[in-house]
Design a protein around this nucleic acid. Structure first.
Length: 867
DNA sequence: AGCACGCCGACT
DNA sequence: GTCGGCGTGCTC
């Protein structure tokens, strides 16, 4: 029963990112816990905050008199103490505010905003008669009946001398009436409806006639619905059923119905089922046989769907060996991390499911993370089929209400397994036993917005708190994870599944050299090999998947005559051409303009739209193979809800010959009639100016190659490239992960990149170059100073165990976005260097030195895209 | 971030 | 002369 709460308020600024102390009102003491969400007065308004500490006495420093917490926002705290602590850890590791980390953990539905209300105060309304006369006076004039207050503005016609009792000072009658009727009104709504009443309202507030209140309003309400609870005393109800007179036919039917209920149903459902009306139900409720109450309605996105129950499958020897290792660790309940390196089709999912089963048997819970786009209905079905209602799905395609309901189900213990994308790592379980991260290498586990956390690293930390086990699964683990697991060496954190569980061989991979094609006169985007292979599939009625790795946005606009390229006026980046709308778009700020017919610079007609977008490939296919049925999947065709599912379903039903898409076609698809996978241009991802380009390409190619010939029909993969001798291409052709890693590691060591060091990218932005330059210099100086004090400032290629070097500040590769210039500093370090803390401290000092400079800092720890 | 408090130009 | 512009200080 603590009297004082430390609260992190929802202000996105580093200077206020510390707990503020509030008095806990006596009536809240039994309810407030670590992780409670509250509304607190802060600098003259009410803000949402999270309770992060509790004490009986106010802290020594701080104000003498604490303000009380204004409201408690949820009966059950949304967060648990371990999550509050985890948020703290995230804020330190990723240089973000504690509040940003806390916000990332809760569903968007409860990111409450302050809402201001007006209500009538104790003070007397000043002379209501005057107000009445005001209204009648306007009746005589040009009255706007719709808006009575506007009418009273007839005062403009009145002589100034009358001004002592300006109608402007009387509150609109309608407003007073509404306030009496409704108790309070949203300030925002009042402002809209009575725009002229501002002065009068201000005065009324000053006099206490009106009172302004603020409270936190969630983005979404809990949907309440009348719910019928079956009789508690069934015998009494049974007796009543028999005693009811024959005339009460409906009541008898209803009673019969509720006696057969196992749990509550909605009133609506009951009435629909029985054909009775609400008054019969009410009569029964009044007699006390049933209870009708407003209850929170749970939206179950998978309601009404049947899931085929599945039993654990027998494991192969290899699977069993891996499973035993994981199971033993789960039973030990000590933190552990495993890397499960298993080729596609090696049966990782079955191992996950049996491990989860064990965790559940031990009374613990499990989280399964999958990349957003792998979270397909088939995936959900597998887990729901095995674990039934114990599974909660957290999926970005759910509405925020549905997601909130699933999340609360977890929080209340109604679900024991959470399956979802990145943010599901925060599923509010209290006794976590296992966290599975499938496709561990996927870049979608790294959040690109603040807090820029990596779900894998957060999972490992969370497992540490709970004594839980983390299983990282991948056919192509990230080099960081692989190196870490290998380093663990004797501990054997590396588990392998090197054979496909279903007997089928990995498909042969052909690499075609597009330079060669060009030399022999083939200027099409399809090599002869791919063309023939496609033709053969069409003839045999088999299907093909074509991958266009468009990352890097190659559809730019260039004038062949003068070299002009279309650039975004707000960002330093070229515009992308979209065939459908004939518009050029900026992928950073959304700016769009109509594509010109002639070059705006030299007026030549030689302006061309370059690069092969999926649209262009689609056109080309139609030209080369008349009548071909193509499904195109990219951001343009999959934005609408469930579009993704719809297309895949069509393809699965063999309603199309070719599935053409960007990376999203590479993931987890499993169609028996797909016997050809073609990669149109492997180079687009290879040539990115990013040290992970090779790794990404290898992973992508390996993954997409796994899509072919997964069943009885043999598959084939064709990769088109201008770089056939690149390691990533050669290794993926040979299905040789280890070979690729060995080469890539050499390269990374030589270049001084992870996993041989770690990186922090600090980006600063401002509208004016001069302010940006000054601030970034100051930041760099502060950081160097701090690193020097800790004795870690030394070149990375030196021999010291601990080293940190700073590169920059320099202009960012995209030197302007949304009219803001961008500079960056890259921090490279090695060994036990508290680099994130140094960066945070340097930012604090820089901001303190020049407050309100307007320079925005953005920190990316372990950045993924160095673009 | 925002809101308050506080000092200088265009309107009743 | 006041309303209101937005510059800085602070928020339990």
């Amino acid at each position: 029963m603590s009297r004082v709460a430390g609260v992190i308020v929802d202000v996105p600024s580093r200077s206020t990112d510390r707990p503020f102390s509030y008095a806990v009102p006596a009536d809240m003491r039994a309810w407030i816990e670590l992780g409670s969400r509250v509304g607190v007065p802060f600098a003259g308004r009410t803000l949402q905050g999270f309770v992060v500490s509790l004490a009986d006495e106010p802290p020594a420093e701080g104000p003498a008199k604490l303000k009380p917490i204004a409201e408690l926002l949820d009966p059950l705290p949304p967060l648990l103490p371990d999550l509050v602590e985890l948020a703290r850890w995230i804020s330190v590791k990723y240089c973000c505010t504690w509040t940003a980390a806390l916000q990332a953990m809760v569903p968007s539905a409860i990111k409450g905003k302050a809402e201001r209300h007006l209500r009538l105060g104790e003070a007397e309304l000043p002379d209501e008669a005057a107000a009445e006369s005001g209204a009648s006076r306007t009746d005589a004039g040009q009255v706007d009946v719709e808006n009575p207050y506007m009418a009273s503005a007839a005062f403009w016609a009145m002589p100034e001398e009358d001004g002592q009792e300006l109608p402007d000072e009387t509150l609109p009658q309608e407003l007073v009436r509404e306030l009496r009727r409704q108790g309070s009104l949203k300030l925002e709504a009042v402002r809209e409806r009575w725009p002229e009443a501002g002065g009068a309202i201000k005065r009324a507030l000053a006099q206490g006639v009106l009172i302004e209140e603020t409270s936190i309003r969630d983005r979404i309400g809990v949907r309440m619905q009348l719910t019928v609870y079956p009789p508690l005393d069934r015998e009494a109800a049974q007796a009543a059923l028999e005693a009811l007179p024959g005339t009460a036919k409906r009541q008898k039917e209803l009673l019969q119905y509720v006696l057969e209920l196992e749990g509550p149903v909605t009133l609506q459902a009951m009435l629909a089922d029985t054909g009775a009306n609400a008054s019969s139900a009410k009569a029964l409720a009044e007699k006390g046989y049933i209870l009708i109450e407003e209850a929170e309605q749970q939206r179950d996105p998978y309601a009404g769907r049947e899931f085929r129950r599945s039993a654990p499958l027998p494991l192969t020897d290899a699977q069993r060996e891996v499973f035993v290792r994981i199971r033993d660790a789960v039973e030990r309940a000590a933190p552990a991390t495993f890397l499960l390196h298993g080729v596609t089709g090696s049966g990782k999912t079955e191992v996950y499911m049996q491990s989860i089963q064990r965790a559940l048997e031990l009374g613990r819970e499990a989280i399964v993370l999958v990349p957003e786009i792998s979270l397909t209905p088939q995936m959900v079905e597998r887990f729901k089929g095995r674990f039934g209602d114990e599974v909660a799905v957290l999926h970005s395609r759910l509405s925020s209400g549905e997601r909130y309901d699933e999340w609360r189900r977890i929080r209340r213990g109604g679900a024991k397994v959470a399956i979802g994308a990145r943010s599901a790592v925060f599923a509010p379980f209290a006794r976590l036993g296992l966290i599975v991260i499938d496709e561990e290498h996927e870049s979608s586990y790294k959040q690109e917005e603040t807090p820029k956390y990596h779900a894998r690293d957060v999972a490992v930390q969370r497992a540490r708190q709970h004594g839980a086990v983390v299983v990282l699964g991948s056919a192509t683990p990230s080099l960081e994870t692989y190196a870490a697991a290998a380093r663990d060496g004797a501990g054997g954190a590396l588990l392998r599944l090197s054979e496909r569980a279903v007997a089928s061989v990995l498909p042969p991979v052909t690499v075609t050299d597009m330079r060669e094609e060009l030399r022999s006169g083939n200027r099409s985007m399809f090599s002869r090999a791919l063309h023939e292979a496609l033709q053969a599939r069409l003839e045999r009625g088999e299907q093909s998947v074509l991958l266009l790795n468009r990352r890097g946005y190659s559809t730019f606009v260039i004038c062949r005559s003068c070299g002009y390229t279309a650039l975004c006026p707000h960002c330093d980046i070229s515009l992308t051409y979209h065939q459908k709308t004939r518009a050029m778009r900026c992928h950073y700020c959304g700016h769009a303009e109509l594509a010109p017919r002639a070059c705006p610079s030299c007026e030549s007609e030689q302006i061309r739209y370059f690069g092969a977008g999926t649209q262009k490939v689609e056109e080309e296919l139609a030209k080369l193979f008349p009548g071909i049925r193509v499904i195109r999947m990219d951001v343009d065709t999959t934005t609408e809800k469930n579009a993704h599912e719809k297309w895949l379903k069509l393809f699965g039903e063999r309603k199309a010959d070719v599935l053409l898409g960007t990376q999203m076609v590479a993931k987890g698809l499993d169609f028996p009639y797909v016997t050809l996978v073609g990669v149109i241009a492997a180079d687009t991802s290879l040539n990115l100016p990013d040290f992970r380009a090779g790794e990404r390409t290898f992973q992508l190619l390996t993954q997409v190659a796994g899509r072919a010939g997964r069943h009885h029909l043999p598959g084939e993969v064709i990769i088109q490239t201008y770089n056939p001798e690149h390691d990533a291409i050669i290794a993926s052709q040979k299905h040789d992960y280890e070979g690729f890693v060995a080469e890539e590691m050499k390269h990374r060591r030589m270049m001084g990149y992870p996993p041989f060091c770690r990186l922090i990218l600090v980006t600063m932005s401002h509208e004016q170059l001069a302010s940006l330059s000054a601030t970034s210099d100051r930041f760099a100086r502060r950081l160097i100073e701090l690193a020097g004090q800790r004795g870690v400032l030394q070149p990375l290629h030196g021999s010291g165990a601990r080293a940190l070097e700073l590169l920059g500040p320099v202009a960012s590769p995209i030197s302007r976005i949304k009219d803001r210039y961008r500079f960056q500093c890259m921090i490279k370090y090695r060994g036990a260097v508290p680099a994130a803390e140094l960066v945070s401290e340097a930012i604090r000092q820089t901001e303190a030195e020049a407050p309100r400079s307007g320079v925005l800092f953005s920190v990316d720890v372990d950045p993924h895209m160095i673009l």
